[in-house]
Write a protein that binds this DNA or RNA. Structure first.
Lengths: 223, 223
DNA sequence: TCCCGTCGGTTACTGCGAGTAACATTACCC
DNA sequence: GGGTAATGTTACTCGCAGTAACCGACGGGA
């Protein structure tokens, strides 16, 4: 059941004595699509090294371990995704507006960086990361942005206690819903990014919004 | 950075010539907590075999590969989780009622089967599965239950078109939000299951409910 | 100009753990 | 009691992560 290992799609022109920063870029450029397509375990370090026009010990010299290489790929993807989101947040202040544009930014980013997305939150078949720490960090950072927004709004309404208890978990739920929708999208790629964003808002914004206005859903009385 | 490999916490009394079904149980019982605690890659087949009072080739005889062993653990966990959910759904017919009790059932199951949950949807540090197919299947099955409920309700309101376009992705989003909340819970285990379920309903039920009643969220007009 | 240190790079290994071939031993059933 | 299927073992192969040890070019000083 071993994955077929084809030639890496990104192969770098073979030059000797390339400066470290540049060589690291090359390695990451080779590794990212490989990890995205075949997943962590069925990519070998030799393969990445060869794709970058170099031999294995160089990869270890620069990234320490295979795990380090993977984490570098994922961390960089996470940084870029979060940066996109932060940029979007900086342009919108009203809560709903900010959320909508943020979610939209995420789905547009996914569309433009499918491989990076696959490495971060990859589906079973293709990506899939044993070392999900960067993905978890990215989720946390995205959730934090939402959490802060919620806390501000709640405190402005005199609901500081609600903010402390529920803002963070709700924000995590929101982010999870977004990522889940992103996963679903990977299997239905014909749909536009806007529709996914709209569905996330449809699904989760009412809930978040209601909480921020002090409206709560009451469970049915037990029979 | 190699994980410390302690003795497996489940070790089976050494008996010779145990029937296959029983030996398989033993192997799974040993493997599950190991995978849950240390993740797929840092558990060795030898270790599981030893814990089950047997040698490696027996594991291969019964599960085919390490991956097969892992998938057996995860599939069985998924089956049980979904069974719980289906049992709950059979007891409640009204949409909101059914959803509430379903979500509640999930969180109660998580509380009682933390290791199985970790193997299925495990967080980075602890569980974490390179082969997420069983987890994806479980998500799909849970989403399908919700999808069907939504489709029925929508069609009953004469909104068959909405049902076809949006029921499935919204249901996946709902499930993702639930799983995300479950992950968050693992890091805040002092809270009760009911609170997690309440938050999921708070977050996502308004959205699903609105859609089922034909209410939609309208994005802000672009400037 | 020569020498020397650093940086980019290699060859050639070790070692662990997945996976297997081939063989051994009981239990059961006719 | 003898054949056979199921349970089990020993003793390997092999791929790949990770490393030790060494190599050669370039850029400063002195």
């Amino acid at each position: 059941m071993r994955a077929v290992k084809s030639e890496p799609e990104v192969v770098v022109e073979r030059r000797r004595r390339v400066p470290r920063a540049e060589r690291e870029e090359q390695m990451l450029a080779v590794a990212l699509p490989l990890f995205a397509k075949r997943g962590y375990h069925s990519v070998s370090v030799d393969e990445v090294a060869a794709g970058a026009g170099v031999t294995k010990p160089m990869v270890y010299a620069y990234f320490g371990s295979k795990e380090g290489l993977f984490e570098a790929c994922a961390s960089r993807a996470a940084d870029r995704l979060v940066a996109e989101l932060e940029a979007s947040a900086a342009h919108h202040t009203e809560a709903g507006d900010r959320m909508w544009h943020g979610v939209l930014a995420v789905f547009r980013w996914i569309a433009e960086h499918r491989e990076a997305w696959a490495v971060l939150y990859g589906a079973p078949g293709s990506g899939g990361s044993p070392f999900a720490a960067p993905a978890a960090r990215a989720s946390d950072r995205m959730a934090r942005l939402i959490t802060e927004q919620m806390e501000d709004t709640l405190r402005a309404h005199g609901m500081g206690a609600v903010a402390e208890q529920h803002a963070a978990p709700m924000a995590h739920g929101f982010v999870a819903a977004t990522i889940g929708m992103g996963r679903w999208w990977m299997e239905h790629p014909e749909e536009p990014a806007e529709l996914q964003a709209l569905r996330v808002m449809q699904l989760a914004w009412n809930g978040i919004g209601n909480v921020m206005e002090g409206k709560v859903w009451i469970p049915p009385a037990p029979r």
